[in-house]
Design a protein around this nucleic acid. Structure first.
Lengths: 208, 208
DNA sequence: CTTTGAATTAATAGGTCTATTAAATAATAC
DNA sequence: GTATTATTTAATAGACCTATTAATTCAAAG
């Protein structure tokens, strides 16, 4: 070791940790596992990140941000709730189809650990991006309600419904694997069907 | 100890384990924790159940069954999909409102552990109850489609949509707690709202 | 070529955990 | 009461885990 210059090793550790955290969650991943995956000494993990919690924090907050950034341009261009719903659901399906383990990782850590919730809360609370996107949603809803294009609905409820349907489509993947089919093409077809189904349900739920 | 006759202790261990598994999940609960909660020696947990996995299995399968049994009479009396949807969602909201940690426990173990999925699969595969209820749903859907009362829909998709919306209402409770309100009355109101919202969404998704 | 600071390792302290064992205690039978 | 069986305990083996320490190797600078 020590042949790789500078921050190379730090990055490798971060990447290995990312994969393992995604695969098995925080609790079930040990710094020994991470080191083994990188092929370095276990102390090195602590040398760069001091604690396992630190390492996790960096990775998790990176996901929080990338999920929030996801296609903000596309979203800002939307002129109606209908467009927005289609755009958001499509973006998330595209992203999660690429990284199908992110939803569970994300949800699990958020449910399981009060500390991790606090972490996310602090990251969200004064986040300009979040505030802007939420304000846009609220504004669009108000407009479309007044125009009689959609029924009255609380923006939080709409968000929760979308998130629920999208995430659960991916959370169910392990079940799909074990109960229905392990074939990759089948899985892709399932996800494509779910995307349409999610959009359809949400749009129907908005008709006046 | 040893003053309590017969199976009393076994039951106490089972109950303590149940609470802890619900609270923290399989991985984060140790047999030491369980013994501490009961107030007995840790070896006793193994004396009665031999392994932690055994103990878990008993508890988990009990939940699988009680969830499946849940109000099967009420459900069998339903004459239309609309009725069925309302009845099912209401029953699950009632049950989970009483035991709000069951949804996460249930979902998590199912997602996280391939072994636990196999366990459930074996329990489901030839289960008469499951087959009957599913057949009834399929039949009702067929009837209502032909009668022009609902649009064409796959029974699996309908089930997944219902389950997703119901479960996620409860999975979000820790977030509700930390981000919105810790007040018990608020939480009850939130759940009541969600129940209506879930029913509403599903029924709207079925209109021809 | 040697010095110096950074990167890496080996070793280990101090915990935890599951599961087993043998010994002690209680309950029951004879 | 004593023998027998069931319950309960203390003790511990054998893993594994995080985090730290001190020693080693490496890379660059003088």
């Amino acid at each position: 070791m020590a042949k790789i210059p500078g921050e190379e090793m730090e990055k490798k550790i971060l990447e290995a940790a990312q994969e393992l955290f995604l695969e098995k969650g925080y609790m079930a991943t040990s710094t020994v596992d991470i080191a083994k995956k990188v092929g370095c000494n276990q102390a090195l993990v602590h040398y760069y990140f001091r604690t396992k919690q630190n390492l996790f924090k960096q990775i998790y907050l990176q996901y929080v941000n990338s999920l929030m950034q996801l296609g903000r341009q596309n979203i800002q261009q939307c002129a109606s709730v209908t467009e927005l719903v289609q755009e958001i659901i499509h973006l998330y399906f595209t992203f999660f189809t690429k990284y199908p383990k992110v939803p569970y990782f994300f949800v699990n850590e958020l449910i399981v650990s009060s500390e991790h919730r606090q972490m996310v809360k602090e990251c969200f609370i004064d986040n300009q991006m979040r505030i802007m996107l939420f304000n846009q949603l609220t504004q669009l809803i108000r407009n479309d309600i007044q125009a009689g294009k959609i029924r009255e609905i609380n923006p939080y409820a709409l968000l929760q419904n979308m998130v629920s349907l999208v995430l659960s489509s991916f959370l169910a993947l392990p079940l799909y694997n074990d109960f229905i089919s392990t074939d990759e093409a089948d899985k892709q077809a399932y996800l494509a069907r779910r995307e349409q189904e999610c959009i359809d349900i949400i749009l129907r739920s908005l008709t006046p």
